[in-house]
Computed example of a mutant assay.
Amino acid sequence: MRSVDYRDLIGGTLIILAGAVGMYHSLTAFQVGTAARMGPGYFPAITGGLLILCGILIVIPALRRAGPMPTLELRPLIWISLSVLAFALLVLPFGLVPAVIVQSLVASQADSKLSRKGSLLLAVCLAGGAWVIFKGGLGVILPAFAWPW
């Protein structure tokens, strides 16, 4: 009987799948162009190809070593999914900073190791970092605060 590292096998396969979907979409929906004159689909196609390569580099060693079968944990799955949904629903009406704070606080419920004080400190630091990177560094056209009232 051959043993397999199932965690890396599943993870690598999902990375390959994500890269293949992204690459297929960029090659069929956008003009790719050439290396000298890149089109809008060039970078996503290259990124998808690199994801496929990384997934293959994860899957091949996983076929040669043993590892436990991962179990599906519902608590992290539910809380992380809810945090992404909360960010999507709050970012436009309230702005980037409040949406990141709420997302961080909701996502922190996925793990019971972080205290409430630690969760709040993490949320504030992440919101500040997001503001510095996206508003200050990249100039993203998204309000930091946009109160709907």
Rank of each mutant, 00 (worst) to 15 (best):
Met1Arg: 10
Arg2Ile: 10
Arg2His: 08
Ser3Leu: 05
Val4Cys: 00
Tyr6Phe: 11
Tyr6Pro: 00
Asp8Gly: 11
Leu9Trp: 04
Ile16Gln: 03
Ile16Asn: 02
Leu17Glu: 02
Gly19Asp: 05
Val21Gly: 01
Tyr24Ser: 14
Leu27Trp: 13
Phe30Ile: 06
Phe30Met: 14
Thr34Gly: 09
Arg37Cys: 02
Met38Tyr: 10
Gly39Gln: 06
Pro40Tyr: 11
Pro40Asp: 15
Gly41Val: 09
Phe43Lys: 03
Ala45Glu: 06
Ala45Ser: 15
Ala45Val: 13
Gly48Phe: 06
Gly48Val: 08
Leu50Cys: 13
Leu50Arg: 07
Gly55Thr: 01
Ile56Val: 14
Leu57Val: 10
Leu57Arg: 02
Ala62Val: 03
Leu63Arg: 02
Ala66Asp: 12
Ala66Met: 11
Gly67Phe: 04
Gly67Lys: 10
Gly67Ile: 04
Met69Trp: 12
Leu72Phe: 15
Glu73Tyr: 12
Glu73Thr: 05
Leu74Thr: 08
Pro76Asp: 09
Leu77Tyr: 10
Ile78Gly: 00
Ile78Glu: 01
Trp79Asn: 02
Ser81Lys: 01
Ser81His: 04
Ser83His: 02
Val84Met: 05
Ala86His: 00
Leu89Phe: 09
Leu90Thr: 06
Phe94Leu: 13
Leu96Val: 05
Ala99Gly: 08
Val102Gln: 06
Gln103Thr: 08
Leu105Asp: 07
Ala107Phe: 04
Ser108Arg: 07
Ser108Cys: 12
Lys113Asp: 13
Ser115Glu: 03
Ser115Leu: 09
Lys117Asp: 07
Leu120Gly: 03
Leu120Cys: 09
Leu120Trp: 08
Leu121Ile: 13
Leu126Gly: 01
Gly128Met: 02
Gly129Glu: 08
Gly129Val: 00
Trp131His: 06
Lys135Arg: 15
Gly136Gln: 11
Val140Cys: 09
Ile141Asn: 14
Ile141Trp: 15
Phe145Leu: 15
Ala146Asn: 12
Ala146Thr: 07
Pro148Cys: 12
